[in-house]
């Protein structure tokens, strides 16, 4: 094998580099933490079950925006038959009025940066 030493040295450097985020967290002692959401609403139910919302809220919001902007349909019938206005600022954030302790918790944890807030206005946060 030509240059065996160089190849192995290179491979080791490569592996160290790509695993950097893992051992960096281990060394800093900030290993995995659980994002903690605070739910501040008095309402008991969201428009769909909690589990569905946890997994699918981004798709639901996508559907809402297409429905409102492109089809002019603005009312959503929830699983319990109740009707809601399809609106991020006016419906979602009416209950979840604490973006920093709700939306941002998981989004920061997962390093996702949804662009919703580039345009949609965040209503004033309620104090807990």
């Amino acid at each position: 094998m030509y240059n065996g030493g160089k190849i192995f040295a290179g491979l080791i450097v490569f592996i160290c580099l790509i695993t950097f985020p893992v051992w960096y967290n281990v060394v800093r002692g900030k290993a995995a933490y659980r994002p903690e959401l605070k739910i501040v609403t008095e309402e008991k139910e969201c428009v769909e079950s909690s589990e569905y919302m946890r997994n699918e809220h981004m798709h639901l919001l996508d559907d809402w925006r297409n429905s409102v902007v492109r089809e002019n349909k603005r009312t959503y019938t929830a699983y319990d038959g109740k009707e809601h206005e399809m609106s991020l600022s006016n419906t979602c954030l009416k209950c979840h009025s604490n973006k920093a302790d709700f939306c941002d918790q998981c989004h920061n944890y997962l390093e996702v940066t949804p662009t919703c807030w580039d345009c949609h206005v965040i209503p004033e946060e309620k104090k807990l």
Binding site: N72, S89, N90, T115, D118, C119, H120, V121
Partner: peptide
């Protein structure tokens, strides 16, 4: 106005005949 979104850099905008009010 908290009842209506702003826009973001890099998109085109124009009058919407107040679609949000008509609704």
């Amino acid at each position: 106005n908290p009842g209506f979104p702003t826009r973001t850099t890099g998109v085109v905008e124009k009058c919407n005949f107040c679609a949000e009010r008509l609704a």
